[in-house]
């Protein structure tokens, strides 16, 4: 069941991965950005976990909303509003849904999050941003669920799609975010946001495994 507890586990696992990969994210951001992506997300996700710990039991939407507002309050930079918006829209999509534990509801929530990132950041896929990991992941999730695959498998496919999308950012010339300032010199480096977004999807695959 993708309930509040499962979503909390997802957020926790994302926080754990971000903390573990903090230096690697910053290293990626050093090459084509300003060397803060790891510190930014780690600060935000640590705060999000603390906020969830402090909060009394609440529904699935509330878990994601708390995560969203905490990220917006603590991250800053580009990734703060973007990840914040992702979780906020995802929470909105779960709010008042009859059965939020339905995998399709999760897929709709994630898709709403993705649309929120697009609306907030005005980037497109191929611009060398987190969208290049998140977008393919959402597509893969939808497809797998539509094909009747169990949630486990669908999330696995999504994680793979995210990782592929992340890797595919390497040759791209950035058009959005800080990396765009480098022009041609941005090619040859993986986008840090695509790397962190991949962790987000991988966290879902790990934390929600067996909860379908």
């Amino acid at each position: 069941m993708v309930d509040a507890e499962a979503l909390t586990a997802w957020v926790r696992e994302f926080a754990r991965l971000v903390h573990e990969q903090r230096d690697e994210l910053t290293r990626l951001d050093s090459a084509i950005g300003d060397a803060d992506h790891g510190a930014n997300l780690d600060r935000g996700m640590t705060a999000a976990v603390a906020a969830l710990d402090a909060q009394s039991a609440a529904g699935p939407a509330a878990v994601l909303k708390t995560t969203a507002t905490t990220l917006i309050k603590t991250v800053g930079g580009a990734s703060g509003p973007l990840y914040g918006t992702f979780f906020l829209r995802a929470a909105g999509a779960l709010d008042g849904v009859p059965d939020p534990t339905d995998p399709a509801a999760l897929a709709r929530a994630v898709r709403a999050g993705l649309d929120g990132v697009v609306a907030r950041g005005k980037a497109e896929r191929g611009d060398k941003t987190m969208l290049d990991a998140l977008g393919p992941a959402c597509d893969a999730l939808d497809e797998a669920l539509a094909a009747g695959k169990p949630l486990d498998e669908a999330l696995g496919a999504a994680a793979q799609a995210a990782a592929d999308g992340r890797d595919a950012t390497e040759p791209l010339v950035a058009r959005k975010g800080r990396a765009s300032y480098l022009g041609e010199r941005s090619a040859g480096h993986v986008d840090p946001g695509a790397a962190s977004a991949t962790l987000l999807v991988q966290a879902a695959a790990t934390a929600l495994a067996g909860r379908g």
Binding site: D34, D36, A39, N40, I72, K73, V75, G76, G77, G80
Partner: peptide, 11 residues
């Protein structure tokens, strides 16, 4: 004042 090289948050 945001964090180093990180824009401030909306609050």
């Amino acid at each position: 004042a945001g964090e180093v090289f990180t824009s401030p948050v909306p609050d």
